[in-house]
Design a protein around this nucleic acid. Sequence first.
DNA 1: GTCTATACGCCGATAGAC
DNA 2: GTCTATCGGCGTATAGAC
Lengths: 199, 199
Amino acid sequence: MTLDTESTTKKVVTEDEILVASLKLFAEKGYFNTSLTDIKDAVEIKTSSGIYQHFKNKQAIAEALYSNILDSLSISIDDIRRRNRKASEQLREIVDLLFKLTEQAPEIIQFLWVINIKEILPEEKSLIETTAFNKIVQVIQNGINDNEIRSIDSLLAYNYFFGIISHTLGLILSGDLEKNAESYHAQAWMAAWQSIAKK
Amino acid sequence: MTLDTESTTKKVVTEDEILVASLKLFAEKGYFNTSLTDIKDAVEIKTSSGIYQHFKNKQAIAEALYSNILDSLSISIDDIRRRNRKASEQLREIVDLLFKLTEQAPEIIQFLWVINIKEILPEEKSLIETTAFNKIVQVIQNGINDNEIRSIDSLLAYNYFFGIISHTLGLILSGDLEKNAESYHAQAWMAAWQSIAKK
DNA sequence: GTCTATACGCCGATAGAC
DNA sequence: GTCTATCGGCGTATAGAC
């Protein structure tokens, strides 16, 4: 019988473990308040060396997170567009997805919304420039062409729509909106949609 | 005739100079990417010691900025409320003020909007909890009481209204909206107001 | 691919002369 | 209240044994 309260077996850390732990820490404390020591502790290895096996440096972790999250969002949006015809239905499902993520994986939305990516990765594209969000603008443009959405600049329409949605998600994440996300979900959708819908 | 391309006279730095320079740097590069060396260079003194005469540490500079900006915003809002009766007029002037600031002093809006104050000053109140923004919620609540604004939770109404406004200002600041702020000003106001106005 | 050990730069902050 | 000088420490990153 050995007394290994602190395990003596070596911990093998995977790239995915590092990403999950980092995302959580970045969302909680911010990128700059998170040290590699924090990450190393979170994945329960003894030194930060293990992390350098997977990532060149701390920035590379943030880059991987950003691109992974946006890739997966982009795929979800493709799927949504495939399954629905009308812009209103597509937008509705996109909003559903974002609210679901806010509830079930708040770190992801926190990372996308609150973290200012340009401060961490000056070279990186801002949200609106990414493929995922361009697809949303495209959905809106189609809605304009199909007379579902009033004919204004699609970027402006995006702006109104997502201004309301993202501000709502922000208030939920910060805890300034006390009740659960579900109760605001329908109302936020209505307000956002009506800000762009054809009367 | 002396060759003092680099002035030999001692530079006396004021608290205000430090605040102005820091605000600019924080807005441009972010708080964590700004070192005291950067600030010292910006106010053209030889060492950071001068800064410590005015501020206990780097955080204290951010604190002073945050509270100064919000105090002055709060005073402006008081003034606006005094000069106008209807909620629509008051909100309209508040929006005017924010757009004017975005054009003439973008650092201020950048600092309020993009900088995540909780990351820098974990103890500090978030925007929505500050006196200035409480006053805006109050304006909205009055508008609800006076039947100008539809009767929903005032925080939600605030959320819709300022979601649109702040998202628009954010796009302008980031340069993603190409034209000048003026051209979006009226449209954003309309969309924001209609998202909460009684039909 | 983890471990121990360590290098080292940068930055925040201070001491003390002027 | 600015200056020179310097310090301590943290955080990133690497070298090399196992």
